[in-house]
Amino acid sequence: MNGTGYEPLDTPKPVADDIWVVDGPAIRFYGLPFSTRATIVRLANGALWVHSPTRLDDELKKRVMALGPVAHLVAPNWIHYAYVAQWQAAFPEAKSWAAPGVAARARKHGLDVAFDHDLTREPPSAWEGEIDQLIVRGSDVHREAVFHHRASRTLILTDLIENFEPRKLPWWLRPVVPLVGVADPDGKMPRDMRATFRKGRDALRADVERMINWRPERVILAHGRWYDREGVAELRRAFRWILD
């Protein structure tokens, strides 16, 4: 299953100056089809920063190279690392960065991928001053790195909000996504993930408030429709269960 409803796939699509999304093919996770999405940022020095890399083919490689040299590959949580090895092989000079838990999970599943650096709650010098970041606290299971591209006022999330458009899903899945809490126009954190933050609600609330204080205009998500406007309002809506 390759169609996602976000065609054209495997093509950098402009979001604002120096930032693009790449919609990849759908993958199956726990038997369910998930759309995939990478985000590419061109840093001030011209180098490319690639978040949650999607499937890489020859055409996408050419299109990415036309934007600049790939310098950083970012695996933002324990699920979003599957295609990093493809990008490492294509761009051997790039440094790979992993959120907590990613390297251990990759080893557990026997994937041939190694990471150069761990992501922390503060940005490294490589993109300090251009991309804010933090590791969201509150769950021992889901440790996600989130980012904010200052110049475009774009918040880049992965799974903390999922926003599937029912009309783009197989008919048998359409009744399910509202029950999980991830159906557009009211996409949120999936209910099973939310349960892992039960003991860390205060920490999660503080980190959501920090994201809001970045004042993003846009919020890019890995799965489903992302928000091209009113980013702060969308964050308040999606996280009302922790903010109220």
Results as ranks from 00 to 15, higher is better:
residue 2 N to V: 05
residue 4 T to A: 07
residue 6 Y to V: 00
residue 7 E to S: 12
residue 8 P to R: 12
residue 10 D to T: 09
residue 13 K to E: 02
residue 18 D to A: 14
residue 20 W to R: 12
residue 21 V to A: 02
residue 21 V to W: 00
residue 30 Y to G: 06
residue 31 G to D: 10
residue 32 L to A: 07
residue 33 P to H: 08
residue 43 L to C: 12
residue 44 A to K: 14
residue 45 N to Q: 13
residue 45 N to I: 03
residue 56 L to V: 03
residue 56 L to C: 04
residue 60 L to P: 02
residue 65 M to Y: 01
residue 66 A to C: 10
residue 67 L to Y: 08
residue 68 G to I: 10
residue 69 P to W: 03
residue 70 V to H: 09
residue 70 V to M: 13
residue 71 A to G: 12
residue 79 I to K: 00
residue 80 H to N: 06
residue 83 Y to V: 00
residue 83 Y to A: 02
residue 89 A to E: 13
residue 91 F to C: 02
residue 95 K to W: 03
residue 98 A to H: 09
residue 98 A to C: 07
residue 99 A to E: 00
residue 101 G to S: 07
residue 103 A to K: 12
residue 104 A to V: 03
residue 112 D to Q: 12
residue 113 V to R: 02
residue 114 A to F: 08
residue 123 P to Q: 11
residue 125 S to M: 12
residue 128 E to C: 05
residue 129 G to L: 09
residue 130 E to G: 06
residue 130 E to V: 07
residue 131 I to N: 04
residue 132 D to A: 09
residue 134 L to D: 01
residue 139 S to F: 08
residue 140 D to F: 09
residue 142 H to W: 15
residue 143 R to K: 15
residue 144 E to C: 02
residue 146 V to F: 12
residue 149 H to E: 11
residue 150 R to M: 11
residue 151 A to C: 06
residue 154 T to R: 13
residue 155 L to S: 08
residue 159 D to I: 10
residue 161 I to M: 07
residue 165 E to D: 14
residue 167 R to K: 14
residue 169 L to P: 05
residue 170 P to H: 11
residue 170 P to M: 07
residue 171 W to Q: 11
residue 177 V to H: 01
residue 181 G to F: 00
residue 188 K to C: 04
residue 189 M to L: 15
residue 192 D to Q: 06
residue 195 A to H: 06
residue 195 A to D: 12
residue 196 T to N: 13
residue 197 F to Y: 15
residue 198 R to N: 11
residue 198 R to E: 15
residue 201 R to T: 14
residue 201 R to I: 06
residue 206 A to H: 09
residue 207 D to T: 04
residue 209 E to F: 03
residue 214 W to Y: 11
residue 216 P to F: 07
residue 218 R to Q: 13
residue 219 V to H: 06
residue 227 Y to I: 05
residue 231 G to D: 10
residue 233 A to M: 08
residue 237 R to G: 00
residue 240 R to D: 15
residue 241 W to G: 04
residue 242 I to M: 06
